[in-house]
Simulated assay, not measured.
Amino acid sequence: MPEVIFPGPEGRLEGRYHPQPERDAPIAIILHPDPKFGGTMNNRVTYNLHYAFHEMGFTVLRFNFRGVGRSQGEYDQGIGELSDAASALDYLQSMNPNAKHCWVAGFSFGAWIGMQLLMRRPEVTGFISVAPPANMYDFSFLAPCPSSGLIINGENDRVVPPADVVGLSDKLKQQKGITITHSVVPEAGHFFEKGMEDMIGQVQDYVRMRQKSPEIR
């Protein structure tokens, strides 16, 4: 899988780009957890999400936020990281102008960034939000949430209490015009030391269901 360097708001951003041979393959961008706590694009959840999407026929890009690895810049409390994600999506779209669908997947901090990216980019047709940190960040900007997606978390998550994820999911489910699916992985913690295969399997089942049901926004 080729390493790529592409322009970001504060300099170069480092990524891993995994294309499909089909020119109109759907595209997906994968967002990693909080750099303050060691999050990188090689985080195990992020890595597995990347390959899960590629296995389903997506052209996939994951990348390091500013200040991580070879990406230039400094941590910016999520504001700059959202701009990084927008630049990464710009790059992915420029490489795949014929892509029919666009998905965003994020883990923890990356899920928070990903949900904000949804609000900026109407072309995003689906999202995967793994362990969204509803206890740490304000998700009230999702009013309304512009596309349907899957929220998934571990039953034994001690970083993001499952009750907070349920609260976020229930709020989004009240919105009309979209369908929010919420799933819980039994016995899994925040980083899915247990239950990784189960989580990835549920993500793939959901995305494949959506691919067969294009009428779901």
Rank of each mutant, 00 (worst) to 15 (best):
N43K: 09
K100E: 14
D84K: 14
V160K: 04
S140H: 12
Y137A: 03
R16V: 14
Q72M: 14
G114N: 11
L61H: 04
D157N: 07
P122D: 14
V159W: 00
K194C: 02
G39E: 01
G78C: 12
P122G: 15
P132L: 06
T179P: 02
P35W: 08
A163Y: 08
P97A: 06
V184Q: 12
A188T: 07
Y206L: 03
F6W: 10
M209K: 09
T59H: 09
I5L: 15
K100N: 13
I30V: 13
P7L: 04
G69H: 06
P33Q: 12
F65G: 00
N135M: 11
M115E: 15
G154S: 07
M56A: 15
K36F: 03
P21C: 00
R158W: 10
F63M: 04
S169N: 02
A86M: 11
M115C: 09
Y91I: 05
K100G: 14
H54V: 09
L168N: 04
M56V: 02
G154D: 06
Q211Y: 10
Y91L: 07
P162C: 08
T181H: 12
P144C: 13
S71K: 11
I5K: 11
H32T: 06
Y47I: 00
I152F: 06
I27F: 02
H50D: 08
M1D: 10
V207D: 03
A99E: 04
I29Q: 08
R23E: 15
Q93I: 13
S147P: 00
R16Y: 13
V124A: 06
S87E: 14
G39L: 03
L49F: 07
H32S: 07
R210T: 01
R44S: 11
R217I: 12
E123V: 13
